[in-house]
Design a protein around this nucleic acid. Structure first.
Length: 934
RNA sequence: GCGGGUGUGGUGAAAUUGGUAGACACGCUAGACUUAGGAUCUAGUGCCGCGAGGCUUGGGGGUUCGAGUCCCUCCACCCGCACCA
C-alpha cells in the first residue's frame, strides 16, 4: 500500500472526532496559550487557497504549543453580520440568515478538510442572538460611561453626575471641545431632558447630529475607515458628507492611550505606524487672533507657534462658521462663488486633483504681537474637520502656504534670514529665526517654550494636542446587524433598562432580537429597513406611553470588537464572559490576520478592551499581545489571445504578429502555461468552434499576477488541492512557499515536491513488498544525529514561526534517514511527533500504527539531546596584527585559554610571531581571533 | 511628498545574525528500472571558461583579516497615509 492520503486522513479525522481530542477546558492549573485567527466573514464564494495561509500557521503553532505542554485555546467563529449578505438578499430575495447559515456550513466543511484543531463547541457567530445579546450589553456599557480625563479612564456616568452636581464641569470640559461652562447651579436647575442632553455630550456611545459619510448606493452611513480614496470600501461606490443623527463611539478620548500603549505590543513597525498615523497625534498650540471690525476671535491650531512672526495670511475652510459673518460686502460674490465651486466638487475629485484655489474674504485679522493686519482667505486646502478649520499661514515655512501665496501673489515675510531665498521653504527646525522680535536668533526647539509661555500669559492661546482620529460612526441604516437596545421617548434616547423608559420586565430583556423581515428596502427618510416594521418599532411602556425603538443597526465592527473574549466562555448566559475565564485566558498571545484591519477592527477592539478594563470587567487593557500579518496569496492568471474580431486564438509567443485581445482563461484548464484545448472548447459555448495558432504544437498562455478573484478565473479552491494531494501536503506546501508574512502568487507546480516528501516519509514505515517495516533495533550514532539535529532546528523554527524552513528541515531529515535505510522505532517515533503539528493526519495514522494508545495530539513534542546536535568544530582565520594569516579549527564552545595555547602551538602562527612579544589575544564577537604582537 | 518594507540562480526561497552564498524544493539535462510513465531511483544543474581559473547577492562607494548581512549614496518595485496646519 502506497501512501494513501485519503485513507489516512479519513481515519485520523474519525479518530479525533471519536476521542474528542480538540476539547478545550478552562483549567487554571495549567499554563495557557491563546492563539487566534481573525475570524472570517462567511461569503458566498467560499474559501480560496489564499485564506488558509494564516489558519494553517496558527494551527501548526497551536498544536506545537499543545505538545509543549500548554493548555491552548485556538478557536474559530464567524463574523456573520454585514453588508454583503444583505446586498445578496436585495438581489435574490434570500434571507441573510439563510444564506449566512449556508455559507457557514460550507466554511466549516472547508476548514475541517484542512484538519484544523478547533473545538467547535466554542464557536461564536456574531449574528447569533446569544452572542449579540452581549454586544448590545457592551454597547450599553459604553452608553452608560464617560471618559474621565483626570483618571484617564472610563467611568460610569454616575460619577460624572456626582461631579456636575458638586462643581459643574469646570474641571471636565466637553470632550467635543465646545466651550460651554456648566455650573453646579445650572445642573441643579436643569430639567431632566436638559440633563440628558448634557450627559450625552460625555457618553462613550452617544447620539449626535453630525457630518458623516453617506453612501447612496449602499443606502447607509459608513465609518471613516470604511471609506477609501473617496469611495466606499465595499463596492467602490461614491460617498458624500451628510449631516445625520447618528450614534458615535467616542474613540477620540482614547487617542492618547491607544497611541502610547502601542509601544508595549509585539506588532510589526508597519502596523504600529499605520495606527499612529490614523490617530495622528500632533502637539502644538491653539492661538486666538482678533478680527478687525468684529468682536469675534479666530482660533487656529498650529504645530509651529514659533513661526508666528511669519504669518502673512489666514486661511479658513470654506465651511468655517465665521466665513459668512466676516466676509466684506465687496467680496461677497467671489466668496459665494468659490463656496459653490467647492461644493460642486465631489470628495473624489478633490482628492484626485489638488488645485490651488481660494478666495479673499476682504476681512483682516490682527497679529497678536505686532498688530499687523493679516488678510483672511478661504480655501479648500484647509479642512473643516481638522483642528479648528482655520490656519495661520506661514509661507516661508510651509509648502502649501508658500504655493498659495505664490498663486495669489501674497507678499512673503522672511523669518529665516539668508537661509530663505524666496524659492524653497524652510522646514529645518535648526535654523535660527529672524524678523521675530523676542525670539530672534533662537531655533525652533529653543523658541517653542518661549513663545508658548508668552501666548499663554497673554491669554491668547494655549498648548494643545490635536488628533486626526474622529469619533467612529456607529449607526448603519441596514437590516443585517445588531439592533440597538435603545428606545426613544419624545425623541430622547433611553437604554431599554433605564427606569425613565419604564419598560416592562420583558421589554427590558437583552437581547433585543432582530425581527424577521421579508422586505429589505430602506425605510422612510434615510432610515433602515427596520423602520418599515411598525409593530416592532412601536412599543407601549408600563405607564402607557408610546415609545419607539432605534431602527438603525450596529456596524460590522461591533461584533468583531470583542469576539476574542467570548471564546473564553462561549456558552455563558449571565455575562459576556466569566471573570475567571478572562483572567485565565487573558490576552491573545498570538493573533494572526491580514493587514487590511490595521485601522478598523484592530483599533476598535483595542478601544473596547480598554473600556471593559477601565470598568473592571476584565483584567487587561490590550487584547492582542503579538500580531502576525500573513501575506496575501495572489492569483496567477492565465491569458489567451484572440485575434480581434475572430474566434481564432494565437499562442503567447506569436501574439505580437497580430492584433489581439487578451482574455482571462480559467487556470484550472491550463497545465502550467499550456492550454488544454479540449477543455477550453467546452469551457464556454462561444469557444466551441475556436481555432488555434500553435507554437511547437502547443498553445502557450500568457501569465499575469493579480488578486485572486472569481472574475479573473484564477481562483484555486483548497478542496481541489486537498482532493488531489491531501490536506497534509496542502498544509505543508502553503508553509513551504515562504515566510507566512510574505505575500506571493499561488503556484500549484511546486506542490509535487512536498507530496513526494510525504510519500518518502511514509516509506520509512512501510515497504511495498514487506509491509510495515518498523524495527526495534538500537539506533546508530548517525541516525540519532540526523534526528536530533532536526528536532532542534524544527523546534526553534516553529517557535519563531519560520515555518517554511522547518518544512525544509523535515525534507532533509527524511532524505538522510532514507539514505541510511533507517526504519527504527527509536528514531521514527519522535519523528512522528515532530511532524504532527504540520501534517497531523499522517502523523496520527502512523502514531496509531506504532501502537500508541492515545492521540498524537496529546503526545509530547520530542526533546533534542545536545550531544547529537552540537557541531564539534568550526574553522576560523587567526589574524596577526589585523591581517589574516592562517585558518584553524576550534571547538565552538572551547575554553579561551585552550584556544590561546593551541594558537601559539600552531607552526604558522609561530612563524609569524617569532621573536616578538605576544601582547594580547582579541576575540572578535567571540569568534574571530586576533593576535597582537609587539 | 511622508512613513514602512523588499531587492540573492530559470522559479519559490535559505544563510547559525559579520565567517565556505545559493540549504530545501520546483524546473531542466542525462541515465537506471520499466510494456509504459506525469511512479521510483542515481548523477548533474549560479554565471563565464575546454581548462587551470575567474566572476557573482539591484548599482556605486566605505568600514573590516573577512560583508548578502554594518555605514554612506543612488536606482527599482510593493504596501500604507496623503492638502492633518
Amino acid at each position: 500500500m502506497e501512501y494513501n492520503f485519503k485513507k489516512t486522513e479519513q481515519q485520523s479525522k474519525q479518530f479525533w472526532k471519536e476521542q474528542k481530542v480538540y476539547k478545550v477546558e478552562n483549567d487554571p492549573s495549567r499554563r495557557k496559550y491563546y492563539v487566534l485567527d481573525m475570524f472570517p466573514y462567511p461569503s458566498g464564494a467560499g474559501l480560496h487557497v489564499g485564506h488558509p495561509l494564516g489558519y494553517i500557521a496558527s494551527d501548526i503553532f497551536a498544536r506545537f504549543k499543545t505538545m509543549k505542554g500548554y493548555n491552548v485555546l485556538h478557536p474559530m467563529g464567524f463574523d456573520a453580520f454585514g453588508l454583503p449578505a444583505e446586498q445578496y438578499a436585495l438581489e435574490t430575495g434570500q434571507h441573510p440568515a439563510v444564506t449566512t447559515e449556508k455559507n457557514i456550513a460550507r466554511y466549516k466543511e472547508q476548514l475541517d478538510n484542512s484538519g484544523f484543531n478547533y473545538d467547535w463547541a466554542r464557536e461564536v457567530r456574531t449574528s447569533d442572538p446569544a452572542y449579540y445579546k452581549w454586544t448590545q450589553w457592551i454597547f450599553l456599557q459604553l452608553f452608560e460611561s464617560w471618559f474621565n480625563r483626570s483618571t484617564q479612564k472610563a467611568e460610569p456616568v454616575s460619577t460624572l453626575i456626582a461631579i456636575l452636581k458638586k462643581e459643574g464641569n469646570s474641571h471636565h470640559p466637553l470632550p467635543s471641545g465646545k466651550e460651554r461652562l456648566i455650573t453646579a447651579e445650572e445642573w441643579q436647575n436643569a430639567t431632566g431632558s436638559e440633563r440628558r442632553n448634557i450627559l450625552m455630550e460625555y457618553r462613550l456611545a452617544y447620539l449626535d447630529y453630525a457630518e458623516v459619510w453617506w453612501c447612496e448606493a449602499l443606502g447607509t452611513v459608513l465609518a471613516n475607515d470604511e471609506v477609501i480614496n473617496g469611495v466606499s470600501e465595499r463596492g467602490g461606490h461614491p460617498v458624500e458628507k451628510k449631516k445625520m443623527r447618528q450614534w458615535f463611539l467616542r474613540i477620540t478620548e482614547y487617542a492618547d492611550r491607544l497611541t502610547s500603549s502601542l509601544n508595549d505590543l509585539d506588532w510589526s513597525e508597519a502596523m504600529k505606524e499605520m495606527q499612529k498615523n490614523w490617530i495622528g497625534k500632533s502637539e502644538g498650540a491653539s492661538v486666538l487672533f482678533d478680527i478687525q471690525g468684529s468682536d469675534k476671535k479666530l482660533e487656529v491650531f498650529t504645530t509651529r507657534p514659533d513661526t508666528i512672526f511669519g504669518v502673512d495670511f489666514m486661511v479658513l475652510a470654506p465651511e468655517h462658521e465665521l466665513v459668512n459673518e466676516i466676509t466684506a460686502n465687496t467680496d461677497k460674490n467671489t466668496v459665494e462663488e468659490y463656496i459653490t465651486y467647492v461644493k460642486s466638487r465631489s470628495e473624489r475629485e478633490r482628492m484626485m486633483e489638488k488645485k490651488i484655489s481660494g478666495a479673499f474674504t476682504g476681512a483682516y485679522a490682527v497679529h497678536p504681537f505686532n498688530g499687523k493686519s493679516i488678510p483672511i482667505w478661504i480655501s479648500e486646502y484647509v479642512l473643516a474637520g481638522y483642528g479648528t478649520g482655520a490656519i495661520m499661514a506661514v509661507p516661508s515655512g510651509d509648502e502649501r502656504d508658500f504655493a498659495f501665496a505664490q498663486h495669489f501673489n501674497i507678499p512673503v515675510t522672511n523669518i529665516f534670514g539668508e537661509q530663505f531665498n524666496g524659492e524653497g521653504v524652510i522646514t529645518d527646525k535648526n535654523i535660527p529665526l529672524h524678523n521675530s522680535d523676542f525670539i530672534n536668533g533662537l531655533n525652533a526647539q529653543e523658541a517653542l517654550p518661549v513663545i508658548l509661555s508668552e501666548i499663554e500669559s497673554k491669554g491668547i492661546g494655549k498648548r494643545k494636542i490635536n488628533y486626526k482620529l474622529r469619533d467612529a460612526g456607529f449607526s448603519r441604516q441596514r437590516y443585517w446587524g445588531e439592533p440597538f437596545p435603545i428606545v426613544y421617548k419624545n425623541g430622547i434616547p433611553y437604554a431599554i433598562n433605564e427606569p425613565e423608559a419604564a419598560l416592562t420586565e420583558e421589554q427590558q430583556q437583552l437581547p433585543v432580537t432582530l425581527p424577521h423581515i421579508e422586505n429589505y428596502k430602506p425605510g422612510p427618510q434615510g432610515e433602515g429597513p427596520l423602520a418599515n416594521i411598525s409593530e416592532w418599532v412601536t412599543l407601549t411602556n408600563t405607564k402607557g406611553e408610546t415609545l419607539k425603538r432605534e431602527t438603525n443597526t450596529m456596524p460590522g465592527y461591533a461584533g468583531s470588537s470583542w469576539y476574542f473574549l467570548r471564546y473564553m466562555n462561549p456558552a455563558n448566559d449571565t455575562t459576556f464572559a466569566d471573570r475567571n475565564a478572562t483572567d485565565y485566558w487573558n490576552q491573545v498571545d498570538l493573533y494572526i490576520g491580514g493587514t487590511e484591519h490595521a485601522v478598523g477592527h484592530l483599533l476598535y477592539s483595542r478601544m473596547w478592551t480598554k473600556v471593559l478594563s477601565d470598568l473592571g470587567w476584565i483584567g487587561f487593557d490590550e487584547p492582542f499581545k503579538k500580531l502576525l500579518n500573513q501575506g496575501m496569496i495572489g492569483g496567477n492568471s492565465r491569458l489567451v489571445y484572440r485575434i480581434s474580431g475572430t474566434q481564432q486564438f494565437v499562442s503567447a509567443g506569436l501574439k505580437d504578429k497580430y492584433t489581439t485581445d487578451a482574455i482571462h482563461v480559467d487556470v484550472n484548464i491550463v497545465d502550467g502555461v499550456e492550454l488544454d484545448i479540449d477543455k477550453f472548447k467546452s469551457w464556454r459555448e462561444e469557444y466551441r468552434n475556436a481555432t488555434f495558432i500553435l507554437e511547437d504544437g502547443r498553445y502557450i498562455c500568457g501569465t499575469l499576477l493579480e488578486k485572486m478573484s472569481k472574475r479573473y478565473y484564477n481562483v484555486v479552491n483548497p478542496d481541489d488541492i486537498i482532493g488531489q494531494y491531501g490536506a497534509d501536503t496542502f498544509r505543508m506546501y502553503e508553509m513551504f512557499l515562504g515566510p507566512v508574512e510574505m505575500g506571493k502568487p499561488w503556484d500549484t507546480k511546486g506542490i509535487e515536491g512536498v507530496h513526494r516528501f510525504l510519500k518518502k516519509f511514509w516509506r520509512l514505515f512501510y515497504d511495498e513488498q514487506q509491509g510495515w517495516i518498523v524495527t526495534d533495533g538500537e539506533p546508530a550514532e548517525n541516525e540519532l544525529k540526523a534526528m536530533h539535529k532536526s528536532i532542534k532546528k524544527i523546534e526553534s523554527d516553529t517557535g519563531k514561526l519560520a515555518l517554511n524552513t522547518a518544512v525544509s528541515q523535515f525534507m532533509i531529515c527524511v532524505n538522510e534517514l532514507s539514505d541510511m535505510h533507517c526504519h527504527k522505532r527509536h528514531i521514527l517515533d519522535p519523528l512522528v511527533r515532530l511532524i504532527a503539528p504540520y501534517a497531523p493526519h499522517i502523523a496520527e495514522f502512523l502514531w496509531q500504527q506504532l501502537g500508541h494508545s492515545g492521540s498524537v495530539v496529546h503526545a509530547a513534542f520530542p526533546q533534542w539531546e545536545e550531544q547529537y546536535v552540537t557541531e564539534n568544530t568550526k574553522r576560523y582565520p587567526v589574524a596577526i596584527n589585523g591581517k589574516a594569516r592562517t585558518e584553524m579549527e576550534f571547538a565552538l564552545d572551547a575554553d579561551p585559554a585552550r584556544i590561546e595555547t593551541e594558537v601559539l602551538a600552531n607552526p604558522a602562527v609561530q612563524k609569524w610571531t617569532e621573536g616578538k612579544e605576544i601582547k594580547k589575544f582579541i576575540y572578535v564577537k567571540g569568534k574571530m581571533l586576533n593576535v597582537v604582537v609587539g
